[in-house]
């Protein structure tokens, strides 16, 4: 459902994405790893048009995302995103955070949207905080609400941009548990993360990136047991050493 064809991206002189060819299928959980500055977040952000590409083609549901006549908003409706720093709306309650887009974009009836939101908040174990404001919550709680906000649009794919990197260690598991639950329900997910446990447990596939290139793109278990590229070996060695 998502396809990168010879995608290149530059920030001025800097070649951020080099000839990316990737495709993601429905129902797949892909984990993207790599050292910082490797282009993994940039790649992810291209999928919902938060970043432009300079060369090549990026198809989402067979629509060329960066073609002139493409309405980017109609694609974003189907592509949810969860950010490293949550980006919840601080002036709205938890419930309002989740219902805003369904009401304004999908034109859902507010009562209907509220019902759906409550179901989703229950799913991420945050229903009791529905009337709180984001500032009253911990990072892990905020991130679970951000996931519910993404789910409220009933997206075909959910993108995660280092969802646990800004969290206190003790709240990481709550977020990962929610993500695992989603993965097991068949949600299509592309996850940029350093959480190796998550990658190994629910990842169908691991994409290892370095210096703007896709170095390895393989079955998750194979990748961990037997990484091919020396950079991947080195990276895995460092991370596993830490854990």
């Amino acid at each position: 459902m998502i396809e990168f064809k010879d995608v290149n991206k530059y920030y001025g002189e800097f070649h951020a994405l080099k000839n990316i060819n990737l495709s993601f299928k429905k129902g797949e959980v892909a984990v993207v790893i790599g050292p910082s500055g490797s282009g993994k977040s940039t790649m992810l952000r291209c999928i919902n048009g938060l970043e432009d590409i300079n060369e090549g083609q990026l198809l989402v549901n067979d629509v060329d995302l960066h073609a002139k006549d493409t309405n980017i908003n109609s694609i974003r409706k189907h592509v949810g995103m969860v950010f490293q720093h949550f980006n919840l709306y601080p002036h709205m309650t938890v419930l309002e955070n989740v219902t805003l887009a369904p009401i304004k974009v999908l034109k859902q009836d507010p009562k209907e949207a509220k019902k759906t939101a409550e179901k989703l908040l229950d799913k991420v174990n945050m229903l009791d905080k529905k009337d709180s404001y984001p500032t009253q919550l911990s990072g892990g709680q905020k991130q679970r609400i951000a996931i519910a906000r993404g789910l409220a649009m009933n997206p075909e794919v959910l993108l995660f941009d280092e969802p646990t990197s800004a969290l206190d260690p003790e709240t990481i598991d709550d977020v990962l548990d929610v993500m695992k639950k989603l993965a097991k329900e068949g949600m299509t997910m592309i996850v940029v993360t350093h959480e190796m446990g998550f990658a190994r447990e629910v990842g169908d596939r691991v994409i290892f990136m370095a210096n703007g290139e896709v170095i390895e793109d393989r079955n998750a278990r194979e990748f961990y047991e037997n990484p091919q590229d020396p950079r991947a070996k080195q990276f895995l060695g460092k991370i596993i050493h830490h854990v």
Partner: peptide, 21 residues
């Protein structure tokens, strides 16, 4: 900046994101 990105990524237009967020 993340506020604008969050709004856009849920399918809100630029002006809707301005107005509501």
């Amino acid at each position: 900046k993340g506020q604008m990105e969050a709004g856009l990524s849920t399918g809100l237009t630029y002006s809707e994101t301005m107005r509501y967020i």
